[in-house]
Write a protein that binds this DNA or RNA. Structure first.
Length: 462
RNA sequence: UCCUCAGUAGCUCAGUUGGUUAGAGCAACGGACUGUUAAUCCGUGGGUCGCCGGUUCGAGUCCAGCCUGGGGAGCCA
């Protein structure tokens, strides 16, 4: 008989038919004569109830059906006799695929702390919360591809291993095949990288943007969606050493087009989650963050505030508020400033533009005022910067000038500079932190709980 | 990396001015129960008090160092 997914059975009204399901036991309860098993196969947050008449099954079998055990069940799908579910399966036969020793299995039929579950990341996908988060994570990844595909963007695979150290987006992980217990050295005691796999120092990528621009200046509109690595010693609920980033890059987009795309993109993803992950979101709304669905709808229903960095600084200066870090034009905004704007002053997402060039990356387009660049940061409640982007500097001389001012390795960037030499074009793009998006959409409070196996300083278990 | 809080049973925690045999709830196990919804009721077992030193007649409790985790900050997505 063909196995059915629990999601399908729960929404089916074809009672009276024989069905075949497989899954893991969430709880078992009952009396001497009758046993109730809540079975989950991951297809939905909801369990299907298996009803087993104790006189039909061997006592040993029923005893071995414990929380966490894996079963295959055939039985009749019937309308539930009891309250709490519409349908249930009256079991005819039960095969025990895998026992689960109740004395040592760490997951109990009770709530667990997120910290404890993190220590058993190999088992936490079996919980309601992580099942919901991982299904939503999948849905968002799918929706990202669908959004861009429908808009005519091309998915560009930028390299994971990079030979350039010029992105300037943080500390990098080195990639090498050299024997670290016996490193070949040059005469001046520097590492002899000519003997390394690539013949030069290489690292894991911190951003696919520069290569993404190369694609955009040929294909028009591209996006990347891949793993990104930062070797920063960041210990916060918002940072991972390995995370996933989406980086669209568009020829002929100015900063305004860029902002329009960012806002439309975020709203599309939120709407997609609301329409396709309803049951998981309702669970998270109830158990993890009260009011989650209202908050998502609120973001959907309101225009993002758009203002320049300079206007934001004015608001912060005038605010009746003592800042731990005093605010002044030219200084980078601190977390407390961003939170104030988003969570207190405007109470909705904010896009800030035209930052001082000194605090932004070399590749951003310089404004005519000589002081600011066409940058944009999208700030969200609770997580701060969810998107960072800009219009790119397309003028060869101005870009080169900025590279020299900042003492960046010009010769490593020859290929990037050549795009400005050969048929340059105005273009823009941004980066969205995938896990930060998932944090916002699921209401989870720690980024380590929205990725299956988090990589953070001093932690690469599993 | 800095600041701060914490680490006691499988989990979540209590543990008084340092005192003799370290507790609770849940889970597990055994039993009862004719349909349960994190079932209920009765009972049982379960501890290297994070590690390592020190103070003391005596340390879960006080002191120093280290480790691990949470929160905040910085860096950023």
């Amino acid at each position: 008989m063909e196995r059915k997914k629990i999601k399908e059975l729960l929404s089916s009204h074809k009672t009276g038919k024989e069905v075949f399901v497989k899954g893991w036991v969430r709880t078992k309860r009952g009396s001497k004569n009758i046993v109730f098993i809540a079975l989950n196969d991951g297809s939905t947050i909801n369990n299907i109830q298996i009803v087993a008449d104790a006189s039909v099954f061997k006592e040993d079998l029923l005893r071995d059906i414990t929380t966490g055990a894996c079963l295959a069940v055939t039985g009749t799908l019937i309308e539930s006799v009891g309250q709490g579910q519409n349908v249930e399966i009256k079991a005819n036969s039960i095969e025990l695929y895998g026992k689960c020793d109740a004395e040592t299995y760490p997951l109990q039929k009770k709530g667990h702390s997120m910290e404890f579950l993190r220590e058993i990341a190999h088992l936490r996908p079996r919980t309601n919360t992580f099942g919901a988060v991982l299904r939503i994570r999948h849905a968002m990844a799918f929706a990202i591809h669908k959004y861009f595909n429908d808009k005519g963007f091309f998915y560009l695979h930028t390299p994971i291993i990079t030979g350039s150290d010029a992105e300037g987006a943080g500390e990098m992980f080195h990639v090498t095949t050299l024997d670290l217990t016996n490193i070949p050295l040059n005469e001046d005691k520097t590492v002899k990288f000519t003997e390394d796999f690539f013949g030069k120092p290489t690292n894991l990528t911190v951003s696919g943007q520069l290569e993404g621009e190369l694609g955009a200046l040929a294909l028009g509109e591209i996006y990347t969606f891949g793993p990104t690595f930062r070797a920063e010693n960041s210990n916060t609920p918002r940072h991972l050493a390995e995370f996933w980033m989406i980086e669209p890059e568009m020829a002929f987009y100015d900063l305004r087009d860029n902002m329009d795309l960012a806002e439309d993109f975020l709203k599309y993803l939120i709407r997609y989650a609301l329409e396709n992950c309803r049951e998981d979101l309702e669970f998270l709304d109830k158990m993890i963050q009260k009011g989650l669905i209202d908050r998502l709808n609120f973001v959907l229903g309101n225009e993002f505030i758009r203002m320049t960095y300079s206007e934001a600084v004015d608001i912060l200066i005038k605010a009746d508020r003592k800042w731990e870090y005093p605010i002044a034009w030219g200084k980078d905004l601190q977390a407390e400033h961003e939170r104030y704007l988003v969570e207190e002053h405007f109470r909705k997402p904010v896009i800030l533009t035209d930052y001082p060039k000194a605090i932004k990356a070399f590749y951003m387009k310089q404004n005519d005022d000589g002081k600011t660049v066409r940058a944009m940061d999208v700030l969200f409640p609770g997580i701060g910067e969810i998107i960072g982007g800009s219009q790119r500097e397309e003028d060869y001389e101005r870009l080169l000038g900025r590279i020299k001012e900042l003492n960046l390795p010009e010769k490593d960037l020859w290929w990037y500079l050549e795009t400005r030499k050969f048929g340059t074009a105005p273009h823009s793009g941004f980066g969205l932190g995938f896990e930060r998006l998932i944090v916002f959409i699921t209401g989870m409070s720690n980024i380590r709980d929205v990725i299956p196996f988090p990589r953070t300083p001093k932690n690469a278990e599993f």
